[in-house]
């Protein structure tokens, strides 16, 4: 079953993803850290799907779809931002900062 170890692993991966989002400056790497967090959540769904039935696996299916859509739109936004400012460094994108 491996329920406990799987949940622990997903907790560790999620924490690493959170640290990456807070630490990194590169917008694209930030997106990759978000994908890492989504993967950690998927692992929780799959681990609990062994107990609760197939619904968890189907939810992972939907999470992957939304992640793919999010990556497409997000990377298009990054592309548009890069065309304006010639950088993806988040510390230099401070136009809305008071």
């Amino acid at each position: 079953m491996l329920l406990g170890p799987s949940l622990a692993l997903s907790a560790v991966l999620f924490a690493i993803g959170v640290a990456g989002v807070l630490i990194r400056r590169n917008a694209i790497v930030l997106f990759m850290c978000i994908e890492l967090m989504l993967n950690a959540v998927n692992l929780t769904f799959i681990a609990l799907a062994q107990v609760h039935g197939m619904s968890g696996q189907i939810m992972v299916f939907f999470v992957m779809t939304v992640a793919a859509a999010e990556a497409a739109v997000g990377l298009a936004i990054i592309l548009a931002i890069f065309r304006h400012t010639q950088t993806v460094d988040l510390t230099q994108l401070n136009l809305l900062k008071g």
Partner: peptide
């Protein structure tokens, strides 16, 4: 970043004690 990740990880790691 590291502080928040450690706090969050410690809270979530409680789940490792779970069994069916």
């Amino acid at each position: 970043g590291v502080g928040a990740a450690l706090v969050l990880g410690a809270q979530l790691l409680v789940m490792r004690g779970y069994s069916v």
